[in-house]
Design a protein around this nucleic acid. Structure first.
Length: 520
RNA sequence: GGCCCCAUCGUCUAACCCGGUUAGGACACAGGGUUUUCAUCCCUGCAAUGCGGGUUCAAAUCCCGCUGGGGUCACCA
């Protein structure tokens, strides 16, 4: 038995990485790293229908994006390879034979119809359903006859009835079950393939997993797994059942199946709207394929791994009574299972957004540039390859945007720096430009702009101050009017920054266009 | 319905294990200030121990019950 801590995350290839599952994976990873142990990725693809190579891609991509590396698993291999359940058939077969040979598992010839009838009968009588062990009554002659005629069967684990299974969970504490209430689980299908509850036990033992850290919906699977481990003579791993991640503002498990109703969830709503907006500009099909339950959503909208990790780490876990900002390093240093809370926790998009603000602020300018550029290219606002002067230009915009740039895709809101056919916010244009006296001031100040030297922020600012001083007009009037005229938007970088970024020529032209617009 | 889990501000949580805090922090929200916009930043405010019994000088904290919420009951994982 290795002395080192070994944890695992065992996703089944579903084609996307669930944000809640990611939190569970993070806790596994953190516990392994905290103890300088190993984190293993194992692919639970025993269900043939789900076994597709393409369905695994997004999951590995999510781990890589967040920087959660695995010591053993797909691509990297390891001493207990292979790490795909679909390739570990021999292990399950051997374990199943062992159980059958020792009388701890039996072939069940019951048909589906029979079982359904039993179940309904139990329901009618209002008693818990426990499978009827008819096949156990079979004589050797009958069994031989069934085998001879090729009658289908499944292998069931024989639950030792009349005892208690106890678990001392790292998070839930002491939990007990009565084995009399546990039906004999099928461990091998008719075609000989293993079922989850069995495969996971065989794998956890063979992979020398020391701590099974998983979501609490697996708690009810645990007694069967413990019994299976005992029957196999395995050393029992320790268990930690973490609360599941709930939908924002609820206690219900966050589920991909409820995605349509999440669109109406007030907090999720903003995220869907953001997706529609961003993916629309990127020429993608909208948020239909990408939603906030998937990790990929956050990557594509331009969130930072540090922010997502920070938010995930604070769902159901805390360092102390006041620390909110957590880097991965800090979490590794302090993460312990006993500080994981017991109650389910709602995922909070607002809080994630706030963490994102923090980590974006910390990000070096060069990294912000690298993060923004791909959006501009994909939205066709920039052509590839991006020239050095253009990179400098975008960098200057990012500086001007300051903390208004929360997620990378926010750079798309500054599209007016890249195109002349930018959208004009009509409502604000009416309010700030198309107003008594304003066009005249705009025209007059435009003339001064023609001769401001040099065309820099301080020079333009003093020119505007001087103009207002002379005319007695409020600076705010000019500032707002200039912004709407040159960018079409009521918000953005400082106006002087905008003018400089645009350059004298474009600034003058846009003011002229705005003036013309006022006359129509 | 059976089994199991859970219960502190709107949300995430601290304090619970080892009873004694004006029940702390953060997000959100509201108000004020700075930036003559917006965002940022600063200040202030709002706001919680589900209910009922015990035990105790003292209960968010220990015990019991209730209520409520949730998970799970497959030849899915």
């Amino acid at each position: 038995m290795p002395s080192t801590v070994r944890t695992r995350f065992a996703p089944s290839p579903t084609g996307y990485m669930h944000i809640g599952g990611m939190r569970t994976a993070l806790f596994n990873w953190l516990w392994a790293r905290h103890n300088k142990g190993q984190f293993i990725l194992r692919i639970d693809d025993t269900d043939q229908a789900r076994n597709q190579e393409a369905a695994l891609g997004p999951i590995l991509r999510a781990f890589r994006w967040l920087g959660l590396d695995w010591d053993e698993g797909p691509d990297v291999g390891g001493p207990y390879a292979p790490y795909y359940q679909s390739q570990r058939g021999e292990l399950y077969r051997a374990a199943a034979e062992k159980l059958e040979a020792t009388g701890q598992a039996y072939r069940d010839y019951a048909t589906k119809d029979e079982i359904d009838a039993d179940r309904k009968q139990a329901e009618r009588e209002k008693r818990p359903y426990i499978n009827i062990r008819r096949s156990l009554e079979l004589t050797d002659a009958q069994k031989a006859a069934f085998t001879a005629e090729g009658r289908p069967w499944v292998l069931r684990f024989l639950i030792p009835r009349g005892q208690k299974v106890a678990l001392d969970d790292h998070i839930r504490g002491h939990v007990e079950w009565e084995t009399a209430l546990l039906p004999d689980p099928v461990i091998l299908r008719g075609d000989g393939s293993p079922l989850y509850n069995f495969a996971t036990v065989v794998d956890d033992a063979q992979l020398q997993i020391t701590h099974v850290v998983r979501a609490e919906e697996h708690l009810s699977n645990t007694p069967v797994q413990i019994l299976l481990h005992q029957a196999l003579g395995n050393t029992l791993p320790e268990f930690a059942h973490v609360p599941y991640v709930a939908a924002p503002g609820s206690k219900e498990k966050l589920s991909k199946r409820k995605i349509d109703q999440y669109r109406k969830n007030p907090q999720f709503k903003k995220m869907f709207e953001k997706a529609d907006e961003v993916f629309g500009q990127l020429g993608l099909t909208g948020s239909a394929a990408l939603d906030p339950v998937m990790v990929e959503y956050y990557e594509r909208v331009g969130y930072l791994p540090a922010a997502v990790l920070n938010a995930l780490g604070r769902i159901g876990w805390s360092l102390d009574d006041s620390t909110e900002i957590l880097s991965l390093e800090t979490m590794i240093e302090h993460f312990t299972l006993d500080r994981v809370v017991q109650a389910p926790a709602g995922f909070d998009p607002d809080k994630l957004y706030s963490f994102q603000g923090h980590w974006m602020k910390e990000l070096p300018l060069a990294d912000k540039l690298d993060g923004c550029l791909p959006y501009l290219v994909q939205a066709k606002l920039l052509a590839e390859p991006v020239s050095e002067p253009m990179r400098k230009f975008v960098e200057a915009i990012i500086v001007g945007l300051g903390e208004r740039l929360k997620v990378f895709s926010d750079i798309l809101a500054a599209d007016y720096f890249f195109r002349d056919d930018f959208a004009v916010d009509e409502k604000n244009f009416d309010k700030r430009v198309r107003k008594e006296g304003v066009p005249a001031h705009l025209a007059a100040f435009r003339r001064r702009l023609q001769s401001v030297e040099p065309f820099t922020v301080p020079a333009i600012e003093s020119a505007l101050q001087a103009y207002c001083q002379e005319t007695g007009e409020q600076t705010g009037t000019l500032i707002h009017a200039l912004r709407l005229a040159t960018t079409g938007q009521p918000v953005g970088p400082g106006v002087y920054d905008c003018l400089v970024l645009l350059g004298r020529e474009k600034s003058l032209a846009r003011i002229e266009t705005a003036l013309a617009r006022c006359r129509t």
